[in-house]
């Protein structure tokens, strides 16, 4: 790890003022320090925002929404009973991520800003357009079983690894930002960028900008009764998703009112499947309907390498997540959150 200048900020304004070229914000550091130890990133200055008071608050807003402070810990948020009841898929996603130790440290903003797990991004001897624009993509033609199937480009086939962001995207979360140019907001679904020909630009944040909160709008709660996050991974716990899906439904009598669907680990951003959502709206749920929705969600998917299986897997996880959501949200986050081995309501499976 390189030597760096360390500045501890007492306020958001102080933090923004202390930031500059070559600087990075440090919250808990669970992702940043990992990257620094690997030499993937070598910031000249760390601006420690971890002690800015009030940034860890989780508050219900007058309009019924919730505002999650940038420094709210993943575990604290997931275990907040009121939050977990209103946004069960978010809680389940959080609890399916990483380990208890990491969730106790990792913050809301840090999770949103976590960088790809692409092995070629981490391997500094490989070419990577993210690390070094124009260097090329070492992953193309390499070991690509876990890479992107949606929204990728020749320049980058990496995926965004967050679990948390998947239900956030589905629920129309909004990212609140402060920076040199003042305050602004961006919908989370638009916050992360697809690679195109500039994969080094990962988010819409401008230099020096800081996430101060993530907000869930008032209507995000209405999916609480029919909401799931499901994650397929290669060991029972403590593994990144191969693919994941967050689903929320409102049911009106025997029909679906609204549907929300987002996929994780399929693209360089949490992938909102709006066409699939439209297909479901105002329809009577059925296996055929869910299959149609899944086809729509994956309509544009293409393998970026040796990962065609992920397309079929993603299709199936959408069907399953819809089936589980229709059956109803479990009263408590399952013992194995988001796992296919979390006990499901009987008969929910084909």
């Amino acid at each position: 790890m390189n030597r760096f200048d360390y500045v501890r900020a007492g306020s958001v304004a102080e933090a923004v003022a202390a930031h500059g070229a070559g600087a990075a914000y440090l919250a808990s550091g669970t992702n940043l320090l990992d990257l620094m130890k690997g030499g993937v990133t070598r910031p000249e200055r760390l601006v420690d925002i971890s002690r800015i008071s009030g940034l860890d608050a989780v508050e219900t807003l007058p309009d019924g929404g919730v505002r999650i402070g940038a420094l709210a810990r993943n575990a604290t948020l997931a275990h907040d009973p009121a939050f977990a009841k209103a946004y069960p898929a978010v809680a389940e996603a959080l609890l399916s991520g990483a380990s208890a130790q990491l969730r106790n440290a990792a913050t809301t903003a840090g999770n949103v800003l976590q960088r790809t797990r692409c092995q070629y991004f981490y391997d500094t001897a490989s070419a990577c357009n993210k690390r070094q624009p124009g260097a090329g993509c070492g992953a193309r033609g390499g070991a690509t079983r876990t890479h992107a199937i949606l929204g990728w480009s020749e320049a980058c086939i990496a995926t965004h690894p967050s679990d948390f962001c998947v239900p956030l995207a589905a629920l129309d979360a909004i990212v609140e930002i402060e920076g040199p140019a003042g305050r602004r907001e961006i919908p989370l679904a638009d916050f992360h960028r697809l690679p195109g020909d500039a994969p080094e630009r990962e988010t819409e944040l401008a230099p020096g900008e800081l996430i101060v909160a993530v907000r869930l709008p008032p209507d995000a709660k209405k999916f609480a009764a029919h909401s799931r996050y499901l994650k397929v991974r290669e060991r029972t716990s403590y593994a990144f998703a191969l693919v994941s899906a967050a689903v929320g439904l409102t049911l009106e009598g025997n029909r679906i009112g609204q549907a929300r669907i987002a996929l994780g680990s399929v693209a360089l951003k949490p992938w909102r499947a709006r066409e699939a959502e439209s297909l479901l709206a105002d329809q009577v749920p059925s296996p055929e309907l869910f299959a149609k929705a899944a086809d729509a969600a994956l309509a544009g998917a293409t393998p970026s390498g040796d990962n065609a299986a992920k397309i079929e897997l993603a299709r199936r996880i959408v069907v399953r997540a819809l089936t589980l959501a229709q059956a109803g949200t479990p009263a408590r986050v399952p013992a194995l959150p988001a796992s296919p081995f979390a006990a499901a309501p009987s008969g929910a499976r084909p």
Binding site: Y6, L26, D48, Q101, N104, A105
Partner: peptide
Amino acid sequence: INACLALAVS
């Protein structure tokens, strides 16, 4: 927490 991913100074 994991002490390896925490900066002492922080």
